[in-house]
Amino acid sequence: MQSGQNRTDDTEKDEILAAAEAGIDIDMLEANLKRSPIERIKRHQIAFNTAEKLRKAKRL
């Protein structure tokens, strides 16, 4: 039988593992968590603008 601490560790591991197994980049997520909310908003804006430029790009 697991101790309470082990159960908590397993739950944490499961949730991060589940995200990783679904293809989520955990390193990117954890790097983002080190940023402030406004930094996250600004980086989202940059990503959005880049995606929009690529979406609108014309084939040569």
């Binding site: 589940a18 679904a22 955990i26 997520l29 954890e30």
Partner: peptide, 16 residues
């Protein structure tokens, strides 16, 4: 569902 996976992982990572 994708957001839930990220939010749960973010919550756990923040709590580490």
């Amino acid at each position: 569902k994708q957001a839930i996976l990220q939010l749960k992982a973010a919550k756990k990572s923040k709590g580490k």
